[in-house]
């Protein structure tokens, strides 16, 4: 990140960020991971913890990427990457796949975002009002339909602007839906009072984190919210 990095702390790598989210996903959840950074989360859920990954294009029970010589050309995920199917996995058509999402059957969706606001608004599909052909894909369905929405993103943009904002300036994907945000600096819950910091990277102070964040931060109680 471009913000001045103090000697006392360093931001998580992308893999560390993904691993941090993976820690909080319990066995038995049905989970949809957004394209990009969230996709890495699956690599950090041990195979003996049965978490069932869903992909919008009709795959439930998705497994890891295949070896190069074991690719099934008929099996891709929503990011158009080749994947595998775990024993117990199934296929369905797009309307059933989105019924899983829109009908509130998916326990968790983790999306990337451009901005998350302190009231839980998410903007992750268009970078300006003037972008007349932005690609929404399944983001609005997931944001409005999943039982819980977490966001995994860098704390700031490449130029150092906070992605945790008072109010989104980019077009919304859905209002008031984000429950938790994992960044490369902190884990924050979205509460009625705004962002509550429940964890920070080692060495960073609350004030240092606040200085890098547009939205006002609150200290969460020591007890971790579920």
């Amino acid at each position: 990140m471009a913000a001045p990095v103090a000697a006392n702390w360093k931001p998580l790598t992308r893999d560390q960020m993904a691993a941090r989210v993976a820690q909080d996903i319990p066995e038995g959840w049905y989970v949809n991971l957004g394209i990009g950074l969230p996709t890495l989360i699956a690599n950090h859920v041990p195979l003996d913890r049965e978490v069932i990954f869903h992909s919008e294009n009709g795959v439930l029970g998705m497994g890891p990427a295949p070896a190069k010589d074991k690719v099934d050309p008929w099996l891709i995920n929503a990011g158009k990457q080749h994947v595998t199917l775990r024993p117990g996995g199934s296929y369905c058509h797009h309307a059933d796949s989105f019924a899983m999402i829109r009908g509130g059957h998916i326990d968790l969706c983790v999306l990337g975002a451009f901005q998350v606001a302190e009231n839980g608004d998410i903007a992750n599909w268009a970078t300006s009002e003037n972008d007349t052909a932005p690609a929404v894909g399944g983001a609005m369905d997931l944001a409005a339909g999943a039982k819980r929405l977490w966001v995994l993103m860098e704390h700031t943009t490449k130029t150092g602007e906070s992605k945790l904002v008072r109010k989104c300036t980019y077009p919304l994907t859905a209002p008031g839906v984000v429950k938790r945000v994992y960044t490369n600096l902190a884990v924050l819950d979205v509460t009625p009072a705004g962002f509550a910091v429940i964890e920070m990277v080692p060495g960073i102070t609350f004030d240092e984190l606040q200085a890098l964040t547009d939205a006002p931060l609150h200290r969460a109680s020591a007890a971790r919210a579920a």
Binding site: E56, H94, A95, F98, R102, A133, G138, A139, M140, D141
Partner: peptide, 15 residues
């Protein structure tokens, strides 16, 4: 002309 539709809404509109 372009009409952008959320993917699940697009599927459901046809269903």
């Amino acid at each position: 002309e372009l009409e952008i539709v959320p993917q699940g809404t697009m599927a459901e509109r046809m269903r």
